[in-house]
Design a protein around this nucleic acid. Structure first.
Length: 270
DNA sequence: GCCCAGGTGACGG
DNA sequence: CCGTCACATGGG
């Protein structure tokens, strides 16, 4: 077991933050994370978390996945003290981090996300994993499907996972990945603008999904996805525009704080 | 039953 | 370039 004491690590908030869909709360208050062919048990504690795995596995997989080398306190300290709204959002979001998710899984889950609420996205992802993923040892759950398995899937079977009109997008993306037209190892090395253009070339991927994929799947912290929630905030709080230039290097972290604050803060619905 | 969901692509002006 | 509309389906 590895215990991390860090006030900027709140598993409950991360699980609610809408960036990942396979970090699941269990009835006993612990969490199960299904990724990297593993089912990791995580126990939230006051000011941190206990990871139920060995030190070697933690160092090999989870230190990076939870982005523990990045100083989120410094990022939140950099918020303009004169910006009362952003200060409140950053304080409320303390503990949220930007996970380093797998690019392929991130691309597919955010293609699925369009015009769906978060519980529905989770449901689709679980159905896809159950039907097309490889079993995870001793977990009673499957890994996220490979591009090959989705490229070979009948469209009819994909539609059976409640994908609706997104099914053809997922199938096309899978075939691009199998053909090498989307080479995720190569995409990692592209500069932001080239990566963005490549992602936009995928059918069913527009600005918002491309930005979410870049932020959550390629850890491009400067990306600032604008969805309906952020749109409302920009109109209400930033009529002259959000100061992206001030926060350029880590605007995506603050975007997550804003999203989380709008969803769950000050009397907003749960 | 009704409304809406972490949007996108196609089309018309 | 901008506004509209269809798109499938399930959760609240």
């Amino acid at each position: 077991m590895v215990e991390i004491r860090n006030g900027e690590l709140d598993i409950r908030k991360i699980a609610l933050s809408g960036q990942c869909f396979r970090l699941n709360a269990r009835a006993d208050g612990r969490y199960e994370l299904l990724v990297h062919g593993r089912a990791l048990e995580i126990e939230p504690i006051e000011g941190g978390a206990r990871f139920h795995c060995g030190a070697e596995e933690f160092g090999a997989l989870w230190r990076a996945y939870f982005d523990l080398e990045t100083d989120y306190a410094a990022i939140r300290r950099a918020v303009d003290p004169a910006d009362a709204y952003l200060c409140a959002a950053a304080a409320f979001g303390r503990g949220v981090r930007i996970l380093r998710q797998e690019p392929w899984e991130t691309l597919v889950t955010f293609i699925l996300s369009q015009r769906k609420n978060i519980p529905a996205i989770r449901g689709c992802v679980e159905q896809l994993c159950a039907r097309f993923g490889e079993p995870i040892a001793d977990a009673g759950a499957n890994a996220f499907p490979t591009p090959e398995s989705l490229a070979n899937a009948e469209l009819e079977c994909l539609l059976g996972c409640s994908l609706g009109y997104r099914g053809k997008y997922v199938q096309a993306a899978a075939r691009m990945a199998v053909s090498g037209e989307l080479d995720f190892a190569a995409l990692e090395r592209l500069p932001d603008d080239a990566l963005y253009e490549t992602l936009l070339s995928v059918s069913g991927v527009g600005k918002k999904v491309a930005d979410c994929t870049m932020l959550f799947g390629f850890h491009r912290l400067s990306r600032f996805p604008v969805d309906v929630w952020i749109e409302r905030v920009l109109a209400r709080e930033y009529p002259n525009g959000f100061p992206l230039e001030r926060y350029g290097g880590f605007a995506g972290v603050l975007q997550q704080d804003i999203f989380y604050y709008e969803r769950y803060g000050q009397g907003n619905r749960s």
